[in-house]
């Protein structure tokens, strides 16, 4: 990951080191525990769970709960499984991530390389938007989406996520471009490149790492969102998190824990995959975005 591995000057004794390894291992178990519980219980029959075997490996291995969670579990009133909601989430996440990242890149470019009076204040205004408790905008947002004819639609959710995500993407690109040498921009100006040509030919080719950070961050945040999905989604635009919650909280019938666990893993899979594949950028992004405002 991005955190540089370097030698500390500190030396510790043998007993102390053993103790340290023990503690670290203990916490490995702590952090792995829920994942273990979800995985093992998603592939065993329901009776094994209710019979007190939650911590055991499955005696009978079955993918039945996965199939059910995906395609036939009762979500709300329809026995559709989670699959339609999975696609709802995809349809919402892809455009929202793309738009907010592009806007963030352009904003970062302007705020660092085309500075103007009060640009820090403008940035502050945009940035503060990330941190507001979203409860404060729920009511007017619902009304606004209605006025715009976007109530209950995927595009409505895209708009919401773009608006409340653009602060983070702007922050990332601004911090990244701030250390990009301004002399390069000046050289390109003298060479006759215009505003967009400089962005496209000079800045963008060097923006790979931060674009990855921004995309992963936005993808994770938007995929994992529940509040906006629960507040603004219609029947056919509900995202995965809302559907999973409906599945788990359903008050009727037998509680099919194994199906719930399978569903939870399904909901977590995309972000987990992204984290494992591109984890180092993810961490770097978190650090860049939060340690330094």
């Amino acid at each position: 990951m991005s955190i540089a591995t370097q030698d500390t000057a500190i030396r510790t004794g043998r007993v102390m080191r053993t103790l340290i390894y023990l503690v670290l291992l203990l916490f490995v178990l702590f952090y792995m525990l829920p994942l273990y519980v979800m995985v093992v219980n998603s592939v065993k029959p329901l009776e094994e769970i209710t019979g007190g075997g939650m911590m055991n490996l499955p005696q009978v291995f079955t993918l039945e709960p996965w199939a059910k969670a995906w395609s036939s579990a009762q979500i709300g009133v329809e026995p559709t499984g989670l699959s339609p909601y999975f696609w709802n989430s995809i349809k919402m996440v892809v455009p929202a991530v793309a738009i907010s990242t592009v806007l963030g890149a352009l904003n970062g470019y302007v705020l660092t390389k085309w500075r103007f009076k009060y640009d820090t204040i403008v940035f502050g205004l945009i940035l503060f938007a990330c941190f507001i408790p979203f409860q404060i905008v729920l009511i007017p947002m619902a009304k606004m989406l209605g006025l715009m004819g976007l109530a209950g639609t995927t595009w409505g959710l895209v708009l919401v996520h773009v608006v409340y995500g653009v602060g983070f993407t702007t922050l990332y690109f601004r911090n990244y471009y701030a250390v990009f040498p301004t002399e390069l921009i000046r050289a390109a100006q003298i060479d006759g490149a215009g505003f967009f040509q400089i962005f496209w030919r000079i800045l963008l080719p060097s923006s790979g790492p931060i674009a990855v950070v921004s995309i992963i961050w936005q993808f994770t945040n938007i995929w994992n969102d529940f509040l906006f999905g629960a507040s603004f989604a219609g029947a056919d635009s509900q995202p995965m998190t809302v559907a999973l919650n409906n599945l788990v909280q359903a008050s009727h019938g037998v509680k099919e824990y194994n199906v719930h666990f399978a569903g939870a893993i399904l909901a977590a899979l995309p972000t987990l995959l992204v984290y494992i594949v591109a984890g180092r950028y993810f961490v770097r992004g978190l650090m860049a975005g939060s340690v330094k405002g």
Binding site: P181, E183, L184, R186, A187, A188, Q189, I190, D191, G192, A193, R201, I202, P205, S206
Partner: peptide, 20 residues
């Protein structure tokens, strides 16, 4: 007048070569 229209050229301290 825009820098590119002054028919001047500049060499910078950091050279400012486009890295890509």
């Amino acid at each position: 007048v825009h820098p590119s229209k002054r028919n001047i050229a500049m060499v910078f301290q950091s050279y400012a070569l486009y890295p890509n």
